[in-house]
Computed example of a mutant assay.
Amino acid sequence: MGPMQSQVTPAAWTVVVPLKPLIRAKSRLAGAVPGAARPGFALAFAQDTVGAVIACPAVRRVVVVTDDPLAAARLAALGARTVPDAPGAGLNAALRYGAARVRAADPDTAVAALNADLPALRPAELARVLHAAARFPRAFLPDAADIGTTLLTALPPSPLSPAFGGPSRARHRASGAVEITLSGVDSVRRDVDTAADLRTARDLGLGRHTATLLAGPVPGRPPREGSPLRGAHGWPDTRCGGE
């Protein structure tokens, strides 16, 4: 993981979570989830992610950057602070904006950017990753595919400098961020874009919002044999976690 740094481990982190309008979210679940149901899944993923982050002992506060009023209300009810997205947006612009808002209010805070689609996230695993990240000015955790990124961190005064999207692992590494190589933190690496991702997250143990959604009927289509979203009809003993 690179040479040890001299920074003092911060007592707590501010985690910035970006979330696009729900109507545009999770388009890659098309074919597995009807269009009418995808916003509900995106919201459930975000609720389970934010709930787990709030429960993490290493986290002081959670800031969600979103223009979606329903998501903002539901995530604020969990204890997150919500701020509207910046004009012109895009994922990295939203993260830069959120990090700038955080640092304007508290210049000495350690900032982490985290994907909103980690429905199996475990607070203890997130705490381990943040503890490891606290040794470096900037650090990141690659996704389960070892192509993208699920978490990017920056200690003050380092800028966050996000480069999410596509092969962001290589971009974050090239930017000077240190790659975190912990084992046993699968829930922090398992973002969900596809039906296969969702099956893997289910095996890790879903948070209650996503597990509840999977156990019920999918709007617009009845459960069918072979569907990844048959819930209790095809996936017995759905395990909850992440909150």
Results as ranks from 00 to 15, higher is better:
Tyr97Glu: 13
Arg239Glu: 15
Pro69Met: 14
Ala120Met: 05
Arg128Lys: 05
Ser168Gln: 12
Ser158Ile: 04
Leu22Ile: 08
Ala76Asp: 08
Pro228Ala: 13
Leu114Ser: 04
Ser227Gln: 04
Gly166Cys: 11
Ile54Tyr: 03
Pro21His: 11
Gly79Ala: 09
Arg171Pro: 02
Asn92Thr: 07
Ala127Trp: 02
Arg171Ser: 13
Asp237Ala: 07
Val188Ile: 14
Leu206Gln: 01
Val129Asn: 08
Pro39Thr: 13
Ser27Tyr: 06
Val185Cys: 05
Asp146His: 09
Gln47Tyr: 06
Pro84Glu: 15
Arg103Tyr: 02
Ala30Phe: 02
Ala36His: 09
Arg221Cys: 12
Thr14Asp: 07
Thr181Cys: 14
Leu160Val: 02
Pro236Ser: 15
Ala11Lys: 00
Arg28Ser: 09
Val63Gln: 01
Arg171Val: 10
Asp237His: 06
Leu75Gln: 03
Ala154Lys: 00
Ala174Cys: 04
Ala174His: 07
Thr181Glu: 14
Leu126Trp: 07
Arg81Leu: 08
Gly148Glu: 02
Arg103Val: 03
Val129Lys: 04
Asp108Leu: 12
Gly2Leu: 09
Gly35Cys: 08
Leu70Thr: 15
Gly31Ala: 04
Ala46Phe: 09
Asp237Glu: 05
Phe41Ala: 06
Pro34Ala: 11
Ala211Gly: 01
Leu95Lys: 10
